[in-house]
Design a protein around this nucleic acid. Structure first.
Length: 423
RNA sequence: GGAGAAGUGUCUGAGUGGUCGAAAGAGCACGCCUGGAAAGUGUGUAUACGGGAAACUGUAUCGCGGGUUCGAAUCCCGCCUUCUCCGCCA
């Protein structure tokens, strides 16, 4: 959530930046400031009133002791008036607060200056490419055929017990999942992250804290009976560990990593390119999350990007890095790099990681601050990145490493899988 | 799920209607003391929002939300969480 004082102090700049994110209702910003002015005025009046009431209450205490009944009665009457008035003022303020809040939550985070202009994914900026696209043998097939051929994943069975998009991993397919999760976790731990294993259901406050609510309400599975949400990413529980927390400056940076299954309704997103592992309702992901000093967040973003690059290179998968344009970025992000691997049989790039700096957008919602050596508490900056999401990595790996005899497992993964070949 | 107890500042913990943003101790920070350290000693040590150039100052916050009262950490109601016992159970 944007801070009102940011809007107040840099109105034109805020408008310019939001326009880059394709926000149309910019005039609501003026409304917010107008309502906030009104709110402030009322608040001052209310507080003056309350100050008087407090003064009276204090005096009453003394009068009661000395037994000056008459005077006490007079004050009581005055206090009653104040109270009536204050009630009224409070109601008005509450109403204004609500209006301001409703408007404020409709605005996404401001994009960083380096974010390219653009509306669609085609306008994302290709900033880096690594590896060469393999030439597959004659008769190479997409991963959904390989999966069947080697009996690695069963979609029909998943559909039977749950529904479409809930795969059952089997045999070496299941072991490959487990191996990758461990590989990704170990790599993150080597890079200084602390492992956490959080709950995979969260409450609404957590959904709000990281920005999924109210913006993406319909994208999360909701457990009605208990009013809990299945997490769409480990980012939600892991970042919210620090909701309403004031950290010491020397505790920064906080570096956490966690594996969780992730659940996404993908309402309306089903279409042409979603066969096989390309899009699922439930999938596995290892997520890295950092809470850092505001001066360091862009440096740290680069560090996280390097980490993800390292993983992909160890897996020997050709990839590219995109800097997302304003129109393609998520609601909460200030700068996002997407990683895509090239899946050679589908001849498509598949998104396997999204690594973002949220600056203070999430921390403002979560009220996660740190106490600097000098001066007032400040909001931390939050970042996260997939390191990595499994299904599309598996898709690319299966497709790119296939031979007519079977599928090679990359060296780095072999100690984890316990096998080097799928046949 | 049933019964009981409890939730106070960084921590321990006092406070059952007024002088309480809150005793005391610990911790931490800075200083004094010391050759250095420990001990001792002095001072400071929550957050948000508002006013003020600043010093400072107003309001709110003692799990959360409401209520009673001139006045609530303290009384009442609801909720949440934790602990103990019972039940159930991977």
């Amino acid at each position: 959530m944007l801070q009102i004082h940011t809007i107040r102090e840099n109105l034109e700049e805020v408008k310019r930046k939001l326009a880059k994110k394709q926000v149309k209702h910019l005039s609501d910003l003026d409304t917010i400031l107008h309502l906030d002015d009104k709110r402030k005025q009322l608040k001052v009046a209310l507080e003056t009133n309350l100050a008087e009431a407090n003064g009276i209450a204090k005096k009453m205490g003394e009068l009661m002791k000395t037994g000056a009944r008459d005077e006490a009665e007079k004050l009581k009457a005055r206090s009653g008036e104040i109270k009536e008035h204050a009630k009224d003022q409070e109601a008005q303020i509450k109403e204004l607060d609500e209006k301001i809040y409703q408007l404020l939550v409709t605005f996404p985070n401001l994009p960083n200056d380096s974010v390219p202009e653009g509306k669609t994914p085609e306008e994302n900026e290709n900033v880096y490419e690594w590896g060469s696209i393999p030439t597959l043998y004659e008769g190479a097939v997409p991963h959904w055929d390989l999966i069947k051929k080697y009996d690695l994943i069963d979609f029909e069975l998943g559909a039977k017990i749950t529904g479409a998009g809930f795969p059952v991993y089997k045999n070496k397919g299941a072991r490959l999942q487990r191996a990758m999760i461990n590989f990704f976790l170990d790599e993150a731990i080597k890079a200084g992250y602390k492992e956490v294993m959080p709950p995979i259901l969260v409450n609404a406050d957590s959904g709000f804290g990281t920005g999924q609510l109210p913006d993406k309400e319909g994208q999360m599975y909701h457990v009605n009976n208990d009013d809990l949400y299945l997490i769409p990413t480990a980012e939600v529980p892991i970042t919210n560990l620090y909701r309403d927390v004031i950290l010491k400056e020397e505790e920064l940076p906080v570096k956490n990593v966690g594996y969780t299954p992730c659940f996404r309704r993908e309402a309306g997103a089903w279409g042409a390119h979603v066969r096989g592992l390309n899009r699922l309702h439930q999938f596995d992901k290892v997520e890295i999350v950092q809470l850092v000093h505001p001066d360091k967040s862009y440096e740290v973003l680069e560090e996280m990007v390097k980490h993800v690059q390292g993983l992909l290179e160890k897996l020997e998968l050709p990839y590219r890095i995109l800097r997302l344009c304003g129109g393609d970025m998520s609601f909460s992000s200030a700068l996002t790099y997407d990683f895509e691997t090239y899946s050679a049989a589908q001849q498509r790039w598949l998104e396997v990681s999204s690594t973002s700096n949220f600056e203070s957008f999430q921390s403002n919602r979560m009220l996660c601050r740190f106490k600097p050596k000098e001066g007032k508490n400040q909001l931390v900056h939050t970042l996260n990145g997939s390191a990595l999401a499994l299904p599309r990595i598996v898709a690319t790996l299966l497709e790119n490493n296939q031979t007519k005899d079977g599928i090679h497992i990359p060296k780095a993964l072999q100690p984890y899988t316990g096998f080097d070949f799928i046949d």
